[in-house]
Simulated assay, not measured.
Amino acid sequence: MQVVTLGPAGTYSHRAARAVVKLQGGSGSDDDVAFRESVTEIVAAVADEEFSRGVVPVENSIEGSVDESLDALAERDVSVVREVVSPIRHALLAQGPEFSTVASHPQALAQCREYLNEHYPDVRREAVASTARGVERAREDASVAAIGHPANAENGLERIAENIQDRDSNATRFLVVAPATERSDAGGKTSLVVYPGANYPGLLLELLSAFANRDINLSRVESRPSGRRLGDYCFHFDIEAGLYEARTQAALGEIETVCEKGWVRRLGSYDTEHVVD
């Protein structure tokens, strides 16, 4: 089984994808992982069944949700079959101690904001498509440092500093997406995308009450613009219950009534794996 994720090789998504392959019984070698340059491309490739699995970052403990992932899950019909949580340990990588630019993914730069402000306040920060792209920049240009996994300190790069993330608890949630036909009702968590198609006082309260009245805990609530018009939103819910449960079905029945002018997408139920790579 080949898994598609955010590339090029060396990203944290790459490491999470290798762990997913191992969880599926594969070797976890680099041959088992393919790359795309954006989360949108990854989700589209899985929706079109070009790949059976995709791994996308959805939330970081410091910087919060990954908006592109939420939007892609709302736009394409896929399922979520597993959640992988991985600690994120950033290193500052460069050809030497003198550099004028730090390049990395915007999330990585933000996760190390306090460290950079304290130690490199005058160094320019450059946002690139992935941490691996930042590493490539540092290998090509001695004036550029990168933020990435410590294992990327090779081929001309050295570790200038390690564990530079602003919080030791830094971790990222990755969702494993599959074609819509593989959606499951079994699992301890469920992800939903809800588009009410309406806007009136108390709308969000009605949606939340459907879960609260049935003792279903919400582990995440996020609103994202629907793209249809200004002020029109989709809601992303993660609940600590499976679709197989009667209380979940009752809550969704109530929500579908509230959203009769819109839609409710069940991304699926799944379990969580904690991996260290």
Rank of each mutant, 00 (worst) to 15 (best):
A110G: 01
G156C: 00
T181K: 15
T181A: 15
G134L: 09
S226G: 06
Y115G: 00
G134Y: 12
I147E: 00
H105Q: 10
N217A: 11
V176H: 10
F174Y: 15
L93I: 03
I216G: 00
L109K: 02
H119C: 07
R214G: 00
R214Q: 04
L208Q: 10
V194G: 01
L116F: 13
I147C: 01
S184D: 08
A138C: 08
A198T: 12
G156S: 01
L157S: 02
R224Y: 12
A103T: 07
Q107A: 13
V135P: 02
Y195L: 04
H149C: 03
T131R: 00
P201R: 14
A138F: 11
A145Q: 06
S223K: 15
L109H: 01
S100P: 04
H149I: 09
Y120C: 00
F99H: 08
T190E: 03
A161P: 04
Y120H: 09
G156Q: 06
E182R: 15
V102W: 12
E154T: 14
V177S: 03
P121G: 07
H119D: 01
N163E: 09
R183F: 07
I164Y: 05
C112G: 05
E98V: 15
N170W: 07
Q111Y: 07
R139D: 04
Y195H: 11
S209A: 13
A210F: 02
T131P: 00
H119R: 15
S209Q: 14
N170I: 02
L116K: 08
D168S: 12
P97H: 14
Y195E: 02
L218R: 10
P196Q: 05
V128C: 03
F211C: 04
K189T: 12
D141H: 15
N217Q: 11
G188D: 15
N217L: 08
S184P: 07
V123K: 08
I164Q: 05
L205A: 13
I160T: 03
G227C: 04
A212M: 09
L203N: 06
R124W: 11
L116W: 07
I147T: 01
S191R: 15
P121M: 02
E182P: 10
S226K: 12
S104L: 06
E118A: 13
V102S: 03
Y195D: 04
S143L: 06
A153L: 05
A110Q: 09
A178E: 07
D185N: 11
S191L: 14
V128W: 07
A110Y: 06
S223Y: 12
E154G: 10
E118G: 10
N155Y: 14
S223P: 08
Q165R: 06
R224C: 03
A146F: 09
L207P: 04
R139I: 05
D166P: 01
L116S: 04
T131K: 05
N163K: 12
R214I: 01
R159F: 05
D168C: 00
A178K: 02
S191D: 13
G156D: 06
V221F: 12
P179G: 02
E154D: 11
I160A: 01
S223I: 08
P121C: 04
A210L: 04
E158F: 13
R220M: 14
R220G: 12
L208N: 12
